[in-house]
Computed example of a mutant assay.
Amino acid sequence: MILKPLADRVIVKQVAAEETTKSGIILSSAAQEKPQVFEVIEVGPGGLVDGNEVKMVVKKGDRVITGKYSGTEVKIDGEEMTIVRQSDILAVVE
């Protein structure tokens, strides 16, 4: 199944959690902190949203940070993804 976001929507997928600490300690799955970094999977076309012209700034493959409780979580073909508005993206990670 293919998802195509509309207007200013962006589909993101959470980046895998770190399995070891910086000092090399291996973490159990319960101790792993859920990362707030997402990879952009697909980007909508932008256009007119609520009477304002929206230009899409993010692109497919970017790593971004979103608001903690923003977006709608969906499960497609066994993969968990989140659909957010571009305005819910707080930063691009470089």
Rank of each mutant, 00 (worst) to 15 (best):
A91V: 10
Y69M: 13
T20I: 14
A16M: 10
V37W: 00
T72W: 10
L6H: 04
V57T: 14
R63W: 11
E18K: 00
V84A: 10
E53W: 13
E18W: 01
Q36M: 09
R63Q: 15
V92R: 03
L27P: 02
S70H: 03
A31Y: 00
V54P: 03
E79T: 09
K59H: 07
S23E: 06
L90G: 08
V57S: 11
V49R: 03
F38M: 05
E19K: 11
I11E: 02
V54M: 08
V40I: 08
N52H: 07
K22F: 14
Y69T: 11
Q14K: 07
Q86W: 06
I2L: 14
K75P: 03
V74Q: 10
E42D: 04
V43W: 02
I76C: 03
E33L: 09
G71T: 11
G46I: 10
L27K: 06
T72Q: 03
K68Q: 05
D50G: 14
M1H: 02
A7M: 10
I25Q: 04
L3T: 13
V43Q: 01
I83T: 10
S28M: 14
I11L: 11
F38E: 00
V74H: 01
S23R: 10
S28K: 08
E80H: 09
K22M: 13
E18I: 02
G71S: 08
E19V: 14
G67I: 11
E33H: 05
V15L: 09
N52P: 01
I41T: 05
V93D: 10
A30Y: 03
I11N: 04
G67H: 01
A7W: 02
G24W: 00
V64Y: 04
Q36E: 11
Q14L: 13
V54S: 06
G47V: 15
L90I: 12
R85Y: 12
I11H: 03
E53M: 12
G44E: 10
T20G: 08
E94Q: 09
E73K: 12
V58P: 00
A30W: 00
S28R: 03
V10P: 00
G47L: 12
E80D: 06
Q36S: 12
I25K: 02
K4I: 15
R85A: 14
G78N: 07
I25E: 03
K13H: 15
A16K: 02
L27W: 02
G71D: 09
Q36H: 11
P45W: 11
K13I: 15
A91I: 07
S70F: 06
K75T: 14
A17L: 05
K68T: 15
K60M: 13
Q14I: 13
